[in-house]
Simulated assay, not measured.
Amino acid sequence: MIIIYGIKNNLNPIKSRLSDVIQYCMNRELGLPDDKRSHRFFPMEKEDFYYPGSRSDAYTVIEINMMQGRRDETKKALIKSLFTEIENTLGLLPVDIEIIIKEQPAHCWGFRGMTGDEVTDLTYQVKV
């Protein structure tokens, strides 16, 4: 699950393209299939979104929640890929993007009536 926060006047016009870029990077770096897109956008009023003074109104926060198991090198490659692709595709400067990866053990995930450590039919690898 990926959660994206930003000022609504800046985030709303790029939501669809940003989702495509994020999914492209998730596919390329983690091997996730396209049908595993799970993005939630939270466009906020400017007065409700506090951010560092050295950032512009384009400041965007991307929280990536995933099961533990990916190597540090894989997670770093994902972060760097996101910075590059978002800048190249949408023109958002890396200084205006914050990326946080939050990992939880598989037993803390619940989907399709089971926990993540019980699932045996994932179409992608977690340990990459």
Rank of each mutant, 00 (worst) to 15 (best):
M1H: 11
I2T: 11
G6K: 02
G6E: 01
I7G: 01
N9Q: 12
N9M: 15
L11S: 02
L11P: 03
N12P: 06
P13H: 08
I14N: 04
R17Y: 11
L18W: 00
Q23C: 05
Y24N: 11
R28I: 15
L30T: 01
L30S: 03
L30K: 04
L32K: 08
D34P: 08
K36Y: 13
R37G: 06
R37C: 07
F42I: 15
M44T: 12
E45M: 04
K46W: 07
D48M: 14
D48H: 13
S54G: 13
R55T: 13
R55M: 06
A58E: 11
E63Y: 13
E63N: 13
M66F: 12
R70N: 01
R71Q: 14
D72C: 08
A77P: 04
A77L: 01
A77K: 04
L78I: 02
L78Y: 02
I79L: 08
S81N: 14
S81I: 08
F83D: 15
T84Y: 09
N88D: 15
T89L: 06
L90P: 00
G91P: 08
L92Y: 11
L92W: 09
I101P: 04
I101W: 02
K102Q: 06
Q104S: 14
A106L: 14
G113E: 00
D121N: 13
Q125D: 14
